[in-house]
Every structure is written in structure tokens, then in C-alpha cells.
Design a protein around this nucleic acid. Structure first.
Lengths: 247, 247
DNA sequence: CATCACGTGCCACATTGTGGAACGCCATGC
DNA sequence: GCATGGCGTTCCACAATGTGGCACGTGATG
């Protein structure tokens, strides 16, 4: 299904670069103009794209894509349930709060975010994907998956992103055990240098991890002495979200 | 581009019915199993779909689709700017607040929602699409579009959804003028019976409508005597969002 | 006024996707 | 324990489908 794959790539590129012209896209992909053009027109007819209001030769993603939502966010969703608890946690700590959902492609996707008002703050855009093995949110999810799945997800080489990344499977398993015992995961420079995050999972009735909430802050504001307190707050927030979601 | 169109339809159907099986989709579309199957596998490889964790013959939308976000919600977005004002309005009124964005296909899409805590409340899922001509959110947007565009968008027959729907173009234009003068739009049973909504637009620097905020409530809780007050609150909220978004 | 860059439309061709048929698996029931 | 039926998956010959080179229209530039 070559053309479908290509069309989806084009759609993603439009999302990234919007508003974007046919010419720019041909440069990105090295495809003939007519091919790109035809794809854009079709995507437009299907309602996924639309021409920019001011410059009608520029294309952007239409709001209709919002109708296509991930399963975890469907209905009386997790997403809605998470908002108030996230706001509350942000107000308590004045640090950025993220909600992430595990994705098939060995990563967690940022689904929602509540910002703090510090000038120096961490930034992850909604839709960003981070590796499972090198983030607090990833660990929080992994810790509650059956061993078989963890093994599968961490089968390949664990990519290192710096000194602190856990690249040894055995070490990762030990860390996950610690996360399970403690109730929350901690990431100190494992993925992005200078970023510290504390995350707790939101679990389904039967214990499958649906999502995780995390507070993340620059290294400079992280006080290891307050870890237990932060951990408790994040865990409580996750519990609150779970209660609202299931209740 | 027949096959692309069809594949996108399948993707949308998966989103609507998730988690869904190949067989169910063949019934919905009347397509051969193999065609549906191949499409699902390709969408899966592209990261848009994934097999359900529990029942691997059921397909659902993967979180990765979130990377494809509409232009209006990009970056330091409207979406983020709208959250706190929406919460505040909800806390003031204890009624459900919606944020909607106009879409190319003659509708407004619900982008965000903050719920009230009444047992009886209005419900519109995130991603839902409603007609421009029969909703307060739609009117709020239409009222600030150039005449040519309004004409274009309302060119076809205006579908009626009940007694109150404005189906006459001239009458709609008059109503839009009123909306512009007053600053907010009111919908009383025009679209969904028993639902009343008051909406105000969020405008760009140059006056193009980007979105609209609305408070919506069941008929039973709507007091016409408080309309002016509600209108002012909604308008203020929209102004607040605009200020945060542009600032 | 010539040139260029860019978006758009056309159409013969072969690459691409199609869908009927067959396979394998599991649950059901005789 | 074996036949049955339903369902997801795989295969492959065929032709319908999408491809992309080419040419046109237009608006900007020098």
C-alpha cells in the first residue's frame, strides 16, 4: 500500500510545517509536483486538510482530524477526567504537568499539558513521542505491564541519551520493581539533559496502565530532599484521575 | 484517488467504533475482507492504528494521531490559552463550557470541554461536528466572516433541525448582524432540542474568527432574564482567551 | 516586456492496489 | 472426537488505479 503510506506521510508533513505550499512539500519529499498536488486535493476533499484562509496556496490541517481520537481518550474520557487534577497539581507545585499515553511504537505520547509560570520551564509539545525506557512516564507505564510485554518492548537495544539512561535490561527491570514498590517513577537526566520528572500511572480496573501523569521541571529547581513529597503528590493526582475516570 | 479516500473512511470508522474487528468493518462498508484487512495493516504500519491489547483482532486508533494537530491548535496555542478562562467561566456558572473551531466542511468542531457538575447536563464529545447555521458557536464564527464567505458557506439549503432552526438565508444574515452588535450568539433549541447555548468568538489580530467559546445548558436551567449577564460573561471569557493567545 | 517560479490540469502508461479463493485457527455442537 | 461454521489472514493474476512528465495560466521580478 505504497500510495496510502506516502499520503499519510504528506499529511504528517503538512501538520508539522503548516501552513505549507505544494512546492515546499515537493522539496521535502522529492516527489513530482503533480503527485503531491493530487494528494493534497484528495486529502482536502476528505476533510483532513484545508487551504489557509489568507494564502489559499498554503495548506493546513483541518479541525476534523480531532474526530479521530485514540481509544484511551474516547467517550467520557481519561482526558477530561485528568484535567482538574492536573490543574490542581500545577497550582500546588507551579511546575509543568504532562499527561501521556503509551503508544504501540515503543513510546509514550504527550496527550495533554498544564504549564507552570516560571520563565525557565520544560517543554514537550502535545503529540510528542518519548521512549519508554528513558522517561519517568515510560517507567510508570512499563512497571505495570506483564513481564512478557516489557520484555517485548525492551527487546531491541535500549538507546542511550546520556550518562543516566538505563541501557541494561536487567537494570531496567530492577528500576521498574522499585517504581512498582514506591508507586512513582523518577527521571533525572535520563532522556533530556537538565530535565527531571516524577510520574505515576493511571491504571484500568484490571491494572493495565492507561496513561501516566508527570510533573517535570528543570534540574535547577529539583530538590532531592522533596522527592518523597513530590512523589506522594503525583501519586495522589494519578489516583484522583483514576477515580474520576472509572467512577 | 479512490483508494486513499476509502482508506481514510476506514480510519474514521475505526475511530468511531473502536475497538473494531475486520469483519465489522466489512459489514459497515460492504467491502471485501481482504481489502479492509490490507488497509488496516498499512495504517498500522504507518502508526495510525494498533491492535487492541486484550483482543488483538480488534483495532483501535493509536495515540500517534495526536501528532497531527489542526493549525489553530498548534504551538503556544489557542487551546492552551483557552483553558484557564474556560475553567473560570465554568466555576462562575457551573455549566458546561465548550471551545470550538470552525472547519472547512461547513461546521464547527468541539475542541475542548469543561464539564459542570449538574446531573443533567449537555454533552458534546470532543471531535463532534455541528452545523454553522444552527448553533451559537457557529453563529459567533459566521458573524465575523466576510460576506462572501458567509454566502459560500450557507449556499446550500440550510438544514432544519426543528422549529427554531433558521433556514432562511436572509433571516440568518439578520441574526448574524444582531450577533455582531451584541457580541455574543444565542442558540435556543435551534440544533438539539432542549439545549440552550451562548457563544462568543475568539478573533485573530485582523478580525478573522479562530474559535468560539460557549456555555451550554439544558433548557430547564436557562433563565432568559439572565441572558445579558451570561452574554457578558461569555464575551469576557472570549476576550480573555484572545488576550492570552495574542499576548 | 521577458523571465522565472509556482500552482494547476491533462493523459498514456505500467505500477499499484484489488478481491476472489483458499488456508488455518478456534469455538460450537452433534 | 470429529464435522461445521465463522473469522482473521495470506496469496496472486488481473486490470483498475494512481503516476509523473509535460504543458498551461498566472503573478511576481528585473
Amino acid at each position: 500500500m505504497k500510495s496510502l503510506t506516502r499520503s499519510l506521510r504528506i499529511l504528517e508533513a503538512v501538520a508539522q510545517h503548516q501552513p505549507v505550499t505544494v512546492g515546499e512539500l515537493t522539496k521535502i519529499f522529492g516527489l513530482p509536483k503533480s503527485t503531491v498536488q493530487r494528494t493534497l486535493v484528495t486529502l482536502n476533499e476528505a476533510g483532513w486538510l484545508r487551504a489557509n484562509r489568507r494564502d489559499t496556496t498554503r495548506w493546513e490541517v483541518g479541525a476534523r482530524v480531532l474526530a479521530v481520537r485514540p481509544a484511551a481518550l474516547q467517550g467520557s474520557s481519561l482526558f477530561a477526567a485528568a484535567r482538574e487534577p492536573m490543574f490542581r497539581l500545577r497550582d500546588t507545585l507551579n511546575e509543568t504537568i504532562h499527561l501521556t499515553v503509551p503508544d504501540a511504537l515503543h513510546g509514550v505520547v504527550v496527550v495533554d499539558r498544564v504549564d507552570c509560570d516560571h520563565t525557565v520551564r520544560t517543554f514537550h509539545a502535545i503529540g510528542d513521542i518519548s521512549p519508554l525506557h528513558a522517561t519517568a512516564t515510560g517507567h510508570a507505564v512499563l512497571a505495570h505491564l506483564p513481564k512478557s510485554e516489557v520484555d517485548e518492548l525492551t527487546a531491541g537495544a535500549l538507546e542511550g541519551f546520556g550518562q543516566e539512561t538505563i541501557t541494561d535490561p536487567a537494570e531496567l527491570r530492577a528500576e521498574l520493581r522499585r517504581v512498582r514498590d514506591r508507586g512513582y517513577a523518577v527521571n533525572h537526566n535520563q532522556y533530556r539533559p537538565g530535565v527531571c520528572a516524577i510520574a505515576a500511572p493511571v491504571l484500568d480496573e484490571d491494572g493495565t496502565p492507561l496513561a501516566s501523569v508527570a510533573v517535570s521541571m528543570p534540574d535547577s529547581r529539583f530538590d532531592p530532599g522533596r522527592l518523597a513529597e513530590l512523589g506522594r503528590l503525583v501519586t495522589d493526582t494519578a489516583a484522583d484521575i483514576t477515580a474520576r475516570h472509572l467512577g
